[in-house]
Design a protein around this nucleic acid. Sequence first.
DNA 1: TATACTTATGAAAACGCTTTCAGAAAACGC
DNA 2: GCGTTTTCTGAAAGCGTTTTCATAAGTATA
Lengths: 350, 350
Amino acid sequence: MKTLSENAFKLMNPKNRSHTISDVAHRAGVSIATVSRVLNGTTPVVPETAERVRVAIEELQFVPRTAARTLASRKTNTIGLILSEIGGAFFPLLLKGIEAETRAMGYELLIHSTQGAHASQRKTLGEHNTDGLLVFTSSLAMEELERLHKINFPIVLMHQTPPEELPIPVVTIENKDGAEKLVSHLIDEHGRRRIVYMRGPVGHEDSQWRERGYREALEKHNIPFAPELVVEGGFEEGLAFANMQKMIQDGIEFDAVFAGDDDTAIGVYRALKMSNRLIPDEVAVVGFDDVQFARYISPALTTIRAPIEEVGRESVRQLICLLNGEQIEGLVLMRTELVIRESCGCRNHP
Amino acid sequence: MKTLSENAFKLMNPKNRSHTISDVAHRAGVSIATVSRVLNGTTPVVPETAERVRVAIEELQFVPRTAARTLASRKTNTIGLILSEIGGAFFPLLLKGIEAETRAMGYELLIHSTQGAHASQRKTLGEHNTDGLLVFTSSLAMEELERLHKINFPIVLMHQTPPEELPIPVVTIENKDGAEKLVSHLIDEHGRRRIVYMRGPVGHEDSQWRERGYREALEKHNIPFAPELVVEGGFEEGLAFANMQKMIQDGIEFDAVFAGDDDTAIGVYRALKMSNRLIPDEVAVVGFDDVQFARYISPALTTIRAPIEEVGRESVRQLICLLNGEQIEGLVLMRTELVIRESCGCRNHP
DNA sequence: TATACTTATGAAAACGCTTTCAGAAAACGC
DNA sequence: GCGTTTTCTGAAAGCGTTTTCATAAGTATA
């Protein structure tokens, strides 16, 4: 009789609110504990019982509430991604990798950008709503990073090396090595010696590493470093254009430009064309990133390709290792690849 | 005395697990109900008491658990975004708008892409973990859409018109109007009459609307529609190149190409250049989307700019209206804008 | 057949909040 | 001053799961 009235309740139930685990339990004639067990496979359940439960779940279209699960199990099954800004050429690739791997590992993905004065609403992402955090470049205040590290909260940094006292794992790309390959190519293959490095914003870590690579390539070829050849391009077309133009007006001599990234290269192109300097004959130009338009501009841009999507995937993998309590190496450097097109002076590109 | 032992507990507590609302309550000498009230501002609390609570929260670095809140309040405070694929030229802009507005409205953002055979793990995003859903193009099975609509779950569609029987609100751009402007420009300003439309994949809604605009422009100028001038470009450089090349080989005559999107335009450029047809003198080319490289290719591409970021923001706004039970209009069309550069034959671009 | 192990299951206690309900204290009206 | 409101606060009941613990079968052991 109890069953009957409860059945009646169940029939009207869908109208009011969606089913819970106990609806399923009643229908399958078991306890909610058993339903939970077949749901999670935590403990063996007699096959027939399990099947009954599964049928009930299907019939009731039951989907467990995430919040209740999280509360009870103290696992959010979610990883958080913090970026300083959404956008930029390789952001989609990065996110694609992150999303795919996150999903594949059975986690949810919560995204936060810290652009604007979001500093006010602190702690939007952290222990209370994620199991671990992916932090891209310096999008998180050092203070918060410290706090999280102190409570042993799993974090993986992307494209950002932490200070010594915070041994947080990092995934990034071989900026230095890539830059070195690029500059060496200009020297070895095209005999360039006065090579400009148009760097990114001050303090930008990727840019700093690229400059290191630039210098190492020079050293390796016994070319003295000339300070006047390093100027800011801001990783941005406009500033790159302006500063390139300024260099030309100032009469600084150079026969090649290593643009800090591909956007910078665009600005460089514009300035050079405007003063009728031929690319690559008079000035060779190379970029970094291999964004989509690199192959479409004229001449096609020689640049460095980094496995951005793989950076995303790998970061997630590392983070999940951390979540599982496994030990991981502190630094993963993804290999970069030289993409030779025409702007360096090579002609092997269709 | 009880207080004392509890204080002792509190002191060791941080080591073990993070603080809860009752830790705060004890420390401030109030009940957890009061803490909850100052946390949420649901009910007035005497200022001094409120201040004591705030101090305690600060001292304990207390952050409420999202799961507990969600469970108790039956609000997830999260909106879900479902896309078929992460990537594509305007994805970053779209996401940027969505993220910013979501945050501004005090919600969290959960992202899912349905690329790959994710059909298996159904219901990853829905009633159980979000308050509402943003669905981009046809990334959600119609069946699931139907189910959600049936239980009155808030949804806003982006760039996808639902079937008649599912009156779900939509936010999209004025594809038809944009295409019409583009094609009319080619006719009015440049006297073109044999205009190719290189459409997107079959069934692609944006493409269909653009074709409608193309036809209307022709009609408006009394140019008969020529079926042989509509070919598939797939919204993709490779296919566009191949099919453009084929048209040329087949000897089909045309004096302009309306590429379905900017990627398509790239393929068209390549094919035209390969057979030495001058752009825009012999063949005018226009695209759609105004992706980043549109201004960098040569000649600079005349195209249509859509307020993609605003589409993202508006979708979120609509969804949140829905969440608040407000009534909203069923369709929001964002205005598109003609961006005239050089590829149409105009010379007014620097 | 009695005894000691295994399983498979259910009852009930968390998990950490929000919210209802009721009572105490304060303010008000006359 | 004494009822009557109005404010503020606390106790306690959920919210929907997971998980521990105990128990009832079922099996193997003696």
